[in-house]
């Protein structure tokens, strides 16, 4: 299939950047990133700078890949990270627009690569259980109801790609933070620090990312289909923590 790609090119963080157009020959069995590999091979052979894009596992689990494809984070397929998207989902002759995550909290480093350190900081603010190595009791000491454990796992499935932020018109990181807050708050092990955790994580989140006004775009963009109900859960937790802590 013949495709026209309009790709955002930007030399570095200081460059203003702009779109360049490329024609590629792709096969429907290729993954989207393999199609970009092919483009890069061609560019390199022609002595042109290849397009920088982030990727690693190429299985939809590491959260590295992060492309805005025709205005949608990770492209047209629901529940699919960019690396899992295949060209058979496109038509011969299509023009595809490829951009980096667009968000004030994610500055572009080069072409399609952005800086997502802000997400790490939210976790550092409190997205953990404070337990030192070696001090844990027997794993079966505290039973956890299965449905709770499963729900915690639904939240924990977040791959930290930042699609939620990228798709949000406000650049809010609510879904990302809520997934971690909920995962830990649903488990008995997470109770002792529950209030402190949600307060600190929300504070960090608000300082670096936009505010949530319930567009719910994040849920649609999430490659792991994490539910916005977790945001409601986080908000409830936050309010009760504020009440308790003053």
């Amino acid at each position: 299939m013949r495709l026209t790609l309009q790709i955002w090119r930007q030399k570095n963080a200081d460059d203003t950047g702009g779109f360049s157009s490329y024609d590629v020959d792709a096969s429907p069995d290729m993954s989207f990133l393999e199609m970009l590999d092919v483009l890069n091979e061609t560019l390199t052979e022609a002595g042109e700078d290849p397009v920088a894009f982030e990727h690693d596992c190429r299985e939809g689990i590491c959260g590295s890949c992060c492309l805005m494809i025709d205005g949608r984070a990770h492209g047209p397929e629901p529940g699919t990270a960019t690396c899992q998207l295949h060209m058979r989902k496109f038509e011969d002759g299509d023009t595809i627009r490829i951009e980096p995550w667009r968000s004030a909290a994610f500055p572009v480093l080069k072409d399609l690569v952005v800086d997502r350190v802000g997400l790490d900081r939210i976790v550092q603010a409190g997205g953990f259980i404070s337990i030192n190595t070696g001090s844990a009791p027997d794993a079966n000491l505290i039973p956890v109801p299965r449905d709770k454990a499963e729900l915690a796992m639904d939240a924990a499935a977040c791959i930290g790609c930042g699609a939620c932020v990228a798709q949000c018109p406000n650049g809010a990181a609510q879904l990302f933070a809520a997934a971690k807050v909920s995962h830990l708050a649903l488990l008995p092990q997470g109770q002792p620090e529950r209030d402190q955790r949600v307060l600190r994580m929300v504070e960090e989140m608000e300082s670096a990312f936009g505010s949530c006004t319930n567009f719910a775009e994040c849920e649609v963009a999430c490659p792991k289909e994490i539910s916005i109900e977790f945001i409601a859960r986080m908000n409830r937790d936050y309010v009760s923590a504020r009440l308790r802590r003053g």
Partner: peptide, 12 residues
């Protein structure tokens, strides 16, 4: 033990 205490949601 360590992982469960950290909140790893193993199957139950």
């Amino acid at each position: 033990d360590q992982c469960v205490a950290q909140g790893v949601p193993f199957g139950r």
